[in-house]
């Protein structure tokens, strides 16, 4: 068993706009099971951050407890990290974000961490529209405790143990839409072509960006009768659209045929270009997104891709009207401007 990755990289490794190679975005070697979908998602995050030329020190990774929540160790080894209490990552993220709004927050959670123990926290971070990327690495089971069915496991799905799950599943995408999330997507760990642009768009989004990533558990939930195994997911996947993410600084040169594509300009000026595969669905209409998700579920399909985006969303800081400067950089002088200032305020209220 290798505990270290060799230091050597491809000699012709390209560098991004700020002079980093992909190696600069890697973490330590994964200790998850071989073939775990979570590792593909980590690789997707590494690629997205490399492509976006994000300085690693500008990212904070946050997680709760579980296989998924171990993964921040395996990417962005030069970034900030906080492995919090089970299901409490949203609170820690909220506190961190309020203290320093200048960082990019990537929260990684699992189906247990989000849909069971952390379900309450999840609902509130959604409705507050905290500016972060919240990813659920959704494998439908509790992999770290030997594969019990989780709250997102579909009714009738069978894990390795062989018993069919008798309960109704929680669909996190529907929950997020319902609670007012301003960026909602679903993807599959085995489809990086779709996942990576979604991660980039989610990072560019100002407000709460939620991606539910189906990520097969190779050890406990990759059985023929599971609805979250590699083959089942591949056979039942249905994409809303293909998505291209065009960063703000890049000039748009390719032209698309009229009518086949839709463009959405994000808050920071970057552009999302959809090539729609699904009729009667508008990525900027929350109710059409909810209808599309319901419709697919009815037909036993898994709807993936970007489902809903509100490019004009107002994040928590805008809602509560904080100062532009990160709160953690405010000094005593800023916070206690002294008697003269107090007098002025009091005067204005008389």
């Amino acid at each position: 068993m290798s505990y270290l990755r060799p230091d050597f990289r491809h000699p012709n490794l390209p560098v991004n706009d700020i002079g980093f190679t992909k190696k600069d975005y890697e973490g330590s070697i994964s200790t998850l099971c071989a073939g775990c979908g979570h590792d593909s998602i980590s690789a997707g995050i590494i690629q997205a951050c490399y492509d976006l030329s994000i300085e690693p020190h500008r990212v904070a990774k946050l997680s709760g407890i579980g296989c998924s929540s171990k993964t921040p160790t395996y990417f962005l080894g030069n970034s900030h990290g906080f492995n919090s209490v089970h299901g409490r990552m949203p609170s820690v993220a909220t506190g961190a974000n309020l203290a320093n709004r200048d960082l990019i927050y990537i929260g990684v959670s699992g189906d247990g961490d989000t849909a069971s123990i952390g379900f309450g926290q999840f609902g509130h971070v959604v409705r507050r529209n905290l500016n972060m990327l919240y990813m659920v690495e959704n494998n439908g089971c509790y992999g770290l405790t030997k594969g019990q069915d989780s709250a997102t496991s579909d009714t009738g799905s069978q894990s390795k143990k062989g018993a069919a799950n008798p309960y109704e599943p929680i669909d996190l995408v529907s929950m997020a839409l319902q609670l007012g999330a301003t960026f909602v997507a679903r993807s599959f760990s085995g489809d990086k072509d779709q996942l990576i642009p979604l991660i980039k768009a989610a990072i560019a989004h100002s407000g709460f960006a939620f991606i539910d990533v189906i990520s097969p558990c190779v050890t406990f939930n990759n059985n023929p009768k599971s609805t979250k195994n590699y083959d089942y997911v591949r056979e039942h996947i249905e994409a809303t659209s293909t998505v291209d993410f065009v960063p703000m600084k890049q000039e748009i040169t390719t032209s698309y045929q009229q009518g086949s594509s839709t463009e959405v300009t994000m808050h920071d000026g970057s552009v999302l270009r959809f090539n729609k595969l699904k009729q009667d669905w508008d990525p900027q209409d929350r109710f059409s997104a909810m209808a599309a998700v319901n419709d697919a579920t009815q037909r036993g399909e898994i709807l993936t891709g970007l489902l809903y985006v509100d490019p004009q969303s107002q994040d928590l800081h805008e809602i509560i009207n904080t100062v532009r400067k990160p709160l953690n950089s405010l000094t005593e002088k800023d916070l206690c401007p002294g008697n003269v200032a107090l007098e002025k305020i009091n005067e204005s209220l008389r």
Binding site: R9, G35, S40, A43, G190, V218
Partner: peptide
């Protein structure tokens, strides 16, 4: 099973 794990881990992108 095309989980891509080998592609993700390969240090030299082979």
């Amino acid at each position: 099973i095309e989980c891509d794990a080998c592609q993700d881990i390969c240090p030299t992108d082979c």
